[in-house]
Design a binder for these strands. Structure first.
Lengths: 237, 237
DNA sequence: GGCTGCCAACTGCTATGGCAGTTGTCCATG
DNA sequence: CATGGACAACTGCCATAGCAGTTGGCAGCC
């Protein structure tokens, strides 16, 4: 991604071409730096020093830190300092389960209101996934997977959902970043699940789409080592 | 929550309500004002004028507005203004479904890690609910209900969950505020559901607890008129 | 040596001022 | 009367400066 490759704990100054507000740019940059591991957990962050590193004032930095705090990515003790939050394996698992639930409702909503154009678009993405799976092109698959979920999120038209899932997917990247190299994902299985989800979307069956999406996310978390294998069979109400 | 029990000669810690940052106080105040209807949807908010109303600087106000924007309660068009977000019935329903899902995972997590003390506490709350239901004391019931869910949220120990559910419950209050007076809730049914949830917690059955909690929230949303009655029977995967 | 108290160097937090866009109004012009 | 353009009054956004706690270390005393 754009996050400049720098020494551990150091942040490169912001480019000034963009039209986004400095606070917004600082927010994204910091979030990226955290999930990429540039700012490791427990690392102390000073509003002032970070401001001079980014080449901006302390104000937008502070604003970004407040938002990151609301995301749970940093914690700040008043008048004492701000620290990158520790996210242990247990918490990563919890966040994964939360994400699975939210992706589920997102898919349910999408199944209800998705227009024909979006369905065609997601079908196209599915085709790319098929090709990527046969070619074992994990990079292309990752990109397609990103678009796949992003499209569903956008289809819901729900801002809260999109924001929350955005934060949670960031954590997901962090988890994958930790399990470095050891991602022996079961590609065909993921493809089949994606197909099933798209089928449910086409059938406009919210409950089915939700169940399949949730199962898909949970299973992928298990194969990624974020979650332990399910202890038992599923439970019925 | 009176003065902490301390040994002779020891001094109890100071209350910390007084020392909250202005930004934090502005955030809470604004959020409260929005969900209470004091600041109706579409109302324009100016950082400066709001600052003088609150008797503080524009900075903390801006900070609070950014956080509210992340919550989805206000939207701000750059260099044009900030307005409190429109939350129509449809969106309210979506947020309700999201909340149901999150309350579900929260309860699942709680079922896994709740200590004996918390279980005893929630059993006590349940007893109060029983009494309140028999006495038709809706005020006491609302209070107990609040504590009931708050206790579960806290039991998860998950900050992200607690923050998200905090925002979503605010929306819930807003929804109830709109359906003024017309809350003919089915009290005994809610009580039975709460009992079932506590039973699942005691059995430490996460899947069961989750399903029951989710169903409970969804049903209560339906009886409150936030969600339409379910169109069909539940679906199996 | 070990403890106490002070001081400088931090920290987050807030106030003030000013910049650059946006909008609405009012007057001059066709 | 209708139209267009400039000006004033907004807006959000950012930089600077200074306040008030917190911390760490170092001198001075027991």
């Amino acid at each position: 991604m754009a996050a400049a490759k720098t020494a551990r704990g150091r942040i490169a100054p912001l480019a000034e071409e963009d039209t986004l507000s400095l606070g917004e740019r600082a927010y994204r940059r910091l979030r990226e730096s955290i999930v990429q591991g540039v700012l490791p957990a427990g690392h102390k962050i000073s509003e002032r020093s970070l401001a001079v590193e980014l080449g901006i004032s302390a104000q937008p930095v502070r604003e970004a830190l407040r938002r990151l705090e609301q995301d749970g990515m940093v914690v700040t003790l008043p008048r004492r300092g701000t620290v990158v939050a520790e996210v242990g394996p247990a918490q990563l698992g919890e966040l994964g389960r939360i994400r699975a639930a939210l992706e589920g409702v997102a898919t349910a909503l999408a199944a209800e209101r998705m227009d024909a154009g979006s369905i065609a678009a997601i079908a196209a993405i599915l085709k790319r996934m098929q090709a990527g799976t046969e070619a074992r092109d994990t990079d292309a698959l990752d990109e397609a997977n990103e678009e796949f979920h992003a499209l569903i999120h956008r289809a819901t038209g729900n801002l809260f959902l999109m924001r929350s899932l955005g934060s949670l997917r960031a954590y997901d990247n962090l988890g994958r970043h930790r399990a470095v190299g050891s991602t022996p994902r079961d590609l065909p299985k993921a493809l089949a699940e994606h197909k099933g989800i798209v089928a449910a979307l086409k059938k406009r069956d919210p409950a089915l789409a939700e169940a399949r999406m949730r199962h898909h996310v949970l299973r992928s978390l298990v194969t990624n080592g974020v979650l332990p294998p399910p202890p038992r069979k599923e439970r019925r109400t």
